[in-house]
Design a protein around this nucleic acid. Structure first.
Lengths: 209, 209
DNA sequence: CCTATACTGTAGTGAACACTACGAAAATTG
DNA sequence: CAATTTTCGTAGTGTTCACTACAGTATAGG
């Protein structure tokens, strides 16, 4: 057991609070003072525990991605690709509109456009989104390999479409769009995937992209 | 002709510059110093011409919306609803990836999540997006009234889907996604609209939402 | 108990922020 | 020309920003 005075606050709870602040108010819109007053601690305690504001954001984003990618992996690993994408999109709508959390996706909400000195934050978020994209891309590639999707299907295009839908849903959810409309929009996106399913006895709804 | 010394800079050019800064770096990420140094003027000149930073942003957003809604109206007013939505989505991809302008849509990029004192900016942008949504909604309602779309089509759901696609494309474009994939994603969204076209002699691709 | 170690609160650091008071400079009007 | 009006550059205002020096306090091992 390490010597020294024990920390007077819970790091994980503090990280959760920081995550939610960055998520709700963005990187630049969240000040250290916001966090310290919300946590009831003083700046030195925060800095000792997490380092700079940039470091804290990185850890908060890490916490977010850890939770979210787990949820997404679970949804996306369902057997049928249509079932997987359905679970993914509807699951995200559910999370984006969860009243106990900031609306939308943190990777979209917290730092799309920042001042030049914070370009690394923008890049950090872009890489987080890229990681999610690769998850979906791999899942679709597997579906093509397993013959679930039409042989000539462009996984890149379909993945980009799905990510586009997810990011758009984030923007809408954060602005307070009605949940039933978001679900309906997500279902329309799901129909696109269904339309590209390989149906030996039926006809194909879409020509390949 | 008004008396007094003439302004030493072009207001419209300055407003364009401000618009691009807010667009590229966000509201909080753009400082008055950014603008004055870019314009080669001093703060009092900027404040005399445009008022506060909030006022300047409002005017810059007005300039943006004026340009964009004109483009969107033109695209959306095409005779067939599928042609209209196709022109809208592909036109937006073209604008979002225009190398001469900041990427994506200003209403999405410049202020999704800000500090609480700037909540009015977030609201301003949400209202701008709401205006665009109503444009699309009216167009789809017209298409239903004219019998172009399936009678039971939910215009709200389909509009929300289209807006979701637009916002998602903005996020992707700003992160530098390849233009051909954005076009492919937009085309998949367009197929959704095509699938809801009323086809008297054919079968209907989608059940109504 | 003593020492070392780690955390805490106080009180600041300099820098950047939005914004402006003020006098000089340039333009029109009479 | 003189008077008036508007803009301009200089040089600030107070506030907030991220961040920290330092001394005090609590915990551990010895």
């Amino acid at each position: 057991m390490p010597a020294g005075r024990k920390r007077g606050f819970d790091d994980q709870a503090a990280l959760q609070t920081a995550m939610e602040f960055f998520w709700r108010q963005g990187y630049e819109g969240t000040s250290i003072a916001d966090l310290t007053t919300a946590l009831g601690i003083n700046p030195p305690s925060l800095y000792a525990a997490f380092g700079s504001k940039r470091d804290l954001f990185e850890k908060a984003l890490g916490r977010y991605m850890c939770q979210r990618t787990a949820q997404m992996e679970e949804a996306i690993s369902k057997p049928g690709v249509d079932e997987a994408i359905t679970a993914l999109l509807l699951g995200r709508v559910e999370v984006f509109t969860d009243p106990d959390l900031p609306a939308g996706c943190m990777t979209v909400q917290s730092g799309l456009s920042l001042a030049k000195p914070h370009a690394d934050i923008v890049e950090m978020l872009a890489q987080a989104r890229e990681g999610m994209r690769l998850m979906v891309l791999e899942r679709l590639a597997r579906a093509v390999a397993e013959g679930e999707l039409l042989p000539g299907t462009s996984c890149e295009a379909l993945t980009r479409f799905i990510m586009t839908t997810l990011y758009g849903l984030s923007v809408e959810a954060a602005a307070g769009a009605p949940k039933d409309e978001l679900i309906a929009a997500a279902n329309l996106a799901i129909e696109v995937v269904r339309g590209m399913l390989f149906q030996p006895q039926g006809h194909h709804v879409y020509a390949q992209v």
